[in-house]
Design a protein around this nucleic acid. Structure first.
Lengths: 225, 225
DNA sequence: CAATTGTCTTTCGCCTACAGTCTACGGCGC
DNA sequence: GCGCCGTAGACTGTAGGCGAAAGACAATTG
C-alpha cells in the first residue's frame, strides 16, 4: 500500500524522536539495576541520579515510581527509593508464577501456531544450539529470551504477554548466576517444546514448559551447595 | 506488654498520616474510573483534574502514570492520558489470565489451608449466601471479592496475589454489568470450592475454580443476546 | 555511664514557571 | 467551493525552588 505521496508505507523512519525523557531514564535505571551496577538495598537519591544522567529530578522521579510498581525498587515514603532486595521466598514465588504463565503460553501457542511460526521457532532453537556449541553464553541467554518471547507472541494473548514479560525479567535478574550454568540441557528441552507445539499437542506443550521452568527452580535451590 | 510510659502497646493508633498525596489521587482517580464517572476514551487533562482535586499537577501526573502501567489509562505521548477503552478481545484475554491465576491460587490454598482458614472461608460463604437471599446485590458482590481475596491469601504467594489483585480489579470493571446477574449460582460453586479446599484436593480445587471463572466468561459472551 | 533531647543535615514531596509539541481553526490561493 | 498553509491556543514535558519530615550525631542531664 502507498500513501498519496507515492512513498511506500514504512520508508520514512518517522524521524525518531528521543521520546519521553522519563522512559529513557526508566530504561537506563533498569539497565543499571539488572546489570548489578546498582546493588540491592542501595539508596537511590533522586538528585544524584538526575545529575548523573544530566536531567532534572522530575523524570527521575517518574521513572522510579514506575520501577516501584514493577517491583524493581522499594519506595519508602519520605525517604526515597531503594533497590529491591530479593528474598528466597520471593524468588520462589516469582518462579511459580512464571511457570504458570509460560505453561499457559505454551498451551495457547500449541493451539494457535501455524507452519511459519513453527519454522521461526526452530530457527531460534538452532541459533541457540549453535551459541551453546560455540560456548557463547551471552548469545545463548539472549536467544533463550527471544525464544520464550516468540512462544508468548504465538500465544496471542497480549495481557498474558505483558505480565509474563515483567515476571520473566525479574526472574532473570534473580537467576542470572544460575541461568548461565544450565545452557545445554535447556536447549534439548526447547526442542521438545517445539515438537509438542508443532504437533499441536496442548497438554504436552504445557507439561514440557512446566517441567522446563521447574528445572530452573531446582537448579536454583541446589545452587550454592 | 507495656512501654516505659505505661501505655499498652496498641493503644496509640499510630496517628494515621494522610499518606503521600499521589496515592490518594491515584485512589480517587481509580474510583472515578471504576464507577464510570470517567468514561472510557475520555481525555483526562492534568490541570483540570488537579484543579478539581485541589492539588497541583505533579501528584496527578504521578497517579496517571501509575494508572497507565496498570492498564487503566493510555498515555499518548505529548497528548495526555485517556481512559482505557476495553475491547472484546482484551476482556477475553484478561479473563483467561484471571482463570489461570485464580485456579493456581485455589490449588495452593488446598495445599496449605488449615482448619481455622477453612472456617473463615465458610463464614464468608455463608455471609454471601445471606446477601443473595436478601437480594442485597452490592453486599454479595463485595463478599465475593473478599472470598476470592481470602483464597488468594491462603495460597501464600505474594507475587501471585498482587498480579491477581490487579487483573481481578480490571475484570470486575469490564464485567460489572454481568457480575450482578449471576449471583446465585456463583455461591453454590463457592461451596464446592471450599469443600475441595477442605479436603485438600488440589486437583479438584483447581478444576472447580477454573470452571467457576469460565462460567463468568460464558455469561459475558452471552450477555447482549 | 546511659538515656534523652535538641539540633543539624539530608532528602523527599509538592508547587510554580517555562519551553516544546500537537490540534484546531481561520484565511488565502486555486 | 475546495484544499492548503499559517497561526493561535491548549496541553504536555521538563526544570528549578521551597517547605517539611526523617535520620544522625553530639551535648546534656539524671
Amino acid at each position: 500500500m502507498t500513501l498519496s505521496t507515492g512513498l511506500p508505507q514504512g520508508a520514512v523512519p518517522r524521524l525518531e524522536r528521543p521520546g519521553p525523557l522519563r522512559d529513557r531514564v526508566y530504561e537506563a535505571l533498569l539497565e543499571l539495576i539488572t546489570t548489578r551496577a546498582l546493588k540491592p538495598g542501595q539508596h537511590l537519591v533522586e538528585s544524584e541520579l538526575a545529575g548523573h544522567l544530566g536531567v532534572s529530578r522530575q523524570p527521575v522521579r517518574e521513572a522510579l515510581q514506575r520501577l516501584s510498581t514493577e517491583g524493581w525498587v522499594d519506595l519508602r515514603p519520605a525517604q526515597g527509593a531503594f533497590v529491591h532486595e530479593p528474598t528466597e521466598e520471593e524468588a520462589d514465588q516469582l518462579l511459580t508464577v512464571r511457570t504458570l504463565l509460560e505453561a499457559e503460553a505454551a498451551r495457547l501457542a500449541a493451539a494457535n501456531a501455524g507452519a511459519a511460526a513453527i519454522g521461526a521457532l526452530e530457527d531460534l532453537c538452532a541459533e541457540g544450539e549453535r551459541a551453546v556449541a560455540a560456548d557463547d553464553v551471552d548469545a545463548a541467554v539472549a536467544t533463550n529470551a527471544r525464544l520464550h518471547a516468540k512462544v508468548m507472541e504465538l500465544a496471542g494473548n497480549t495481557v498474558l504477554a505483558e505480565l509474563a514479560a515483567q515476571v520473566d525479567r525479574r526472574v532473570r535478574w534473580y537467576y542470572t548466576p544460575v541461568a548461565r550454568q544450565r545452557g545445554r540441557q535447556s536447549w534439548t528441552e526447547h526442542r521438545e517444546l517445539i515438537a509438542a507445539i508443532a504437533e499441536r499437542d496442548e497438554q504436552r506443550a504445557t507439561d514440557v514448559m512446566r517441567a522446563h521452568t521447574e528445572h530452573t527452580r531446582q537448579m536454583y535451590h541446589d545452587r550454592e551447595k
